[in-house]
Structures are given as C-alpha cells and as structure tokens.
Amino acid sequence: MGGVFKRDLALAFRQKAELVQPLMFLLMVVTLFPLGVGPGPDTLQLIGPGVIWIAAILSSLMGMERLFRDDFADGSLEQLQLSGLPLYAVATMKVLCHWLVTFIPLLILSPLLAMFLNLTVDMYIALVITLLLGTPLLSLVGAIAVGLTVGLQRGGVLLALLLIPVFIPLLIFATSAVDAAALQLPYRAQIAIIGAMLLIAMALAPAAIAYSLKVSQN
C-alpha cells in the first residue's frame, strides 16, 4: 500500500507542470475579481470568501482527472486491480496523495489570496478551517466521478458537469462560515456540517471509488 502512495508521489513530482497549472489558474481567477468587480476594499471583503472557494473548486476540477486518467490509459490500473491489494485501500491512498499535492499548495498560498481580497484575520482563520475540512471532501467525491468517467474520451467537461452541483452545499456552508467570522459571529455549526459531510465521504467514498473503477474496466 505504501508502494502505491510512493509511486503516486514520485509521479506527481515528475510531472510538476500538472501540479502548478491548476494553482496558477486559481491565482489568476482570484486576481481577475479585483479587476472586474472593482478594487474597493469593502467590496473585495464581501465577495472574498466566495471567490476563493469558487476558484478552489474550479481549479480542483482541472487537476482532478489526473487521479486515475494516466493509470487507466496505460494499463497500470489493470495491473493494480490484479495485484490482490484491496481496491478501496488503493483508491484511498491515491486520493490521499492527490489531496496532498493539490490542496496543500493551495493552503500554503491562501494567506496571499486572503491579502488580495482584504480578508480580516478572523475571516482568514475561518477560511483555513473550511479549506482544511472541505478540500478532502472535494478529492473524495471528485474521485468517484473520475472513476466513472475515466473510460470515456474527453470526460473532462462531463466531470465538471457532474461535480459542480454536488459541491454546492459545501460552497454554501464554507462561505457562510467565513461570512459569519467577518461579523464576529460563531460559525461552529457550519464547520460541524462540513465535518459531518467529510466523515460520511470518508466512510463511503472508498467503496464507491473502487466500484466505479470496476465499472469502468467492464
């Protein structure tokens, strides 16, 4: 199992461009908003949480396909399925690796984004908590959809169409948590709901990913 993780990590660092591109995309989307909406500090603070979260979701969709695409195309996934390792565990390892290389850089970049959009320290803390809990959810749920679409040619747009509606609840609770933080209100409820969604996803997604990969091999 550690072998799967190490291999994915090695591959990720071998293909750095694929890691950096979604991050650059995120940065550019966020910088477009002050230019398009206007640079007023109050306006930016108002739209900031939503902008960062939407940009995070969109940029995560760009890199999501990487999860299984190459392994499916070159047959490595077949070999993995015939290795005798439990497929749900393999899928979990791959999702974990994907989260580490996709979203940890985003978290590192987040103070800069918060500064761009004039977020207060309270808002930033809330934003980081929602990102920490919410982004694994993006990876886990996204992996199910990637598993289902990996056998299709040009599954990229379909992937976005499948996933964006699913991420709406996460977006609502995440941005509302940051908004509450802006007003110095408690936001534990929103965090608890995101946490609950994450726990459900952690429990169910590995089996669902394994099943979707099996379906794609048929």
Binding site: R7, A10, L11, R14, Q15, D70, D71, A73, D74, G75, S76, E78, Q79, L82, S83, G84
Partner: peptide, 17 residues
Amino acid sequence: FKDLIYVGHKPGVNGAL
C-alpha cells in the same frame, strides 16, 4: 491474483517513470 500474471494490450508501463 497471486498465481496470475496478466499482460494486456495496454503495457501497464508509466511513461514518466
């Protein structure tokens, strides 16, 4: 799976490694 080796159409060889 312990007793099987399968070599399919797709080589199962990653191009970047």
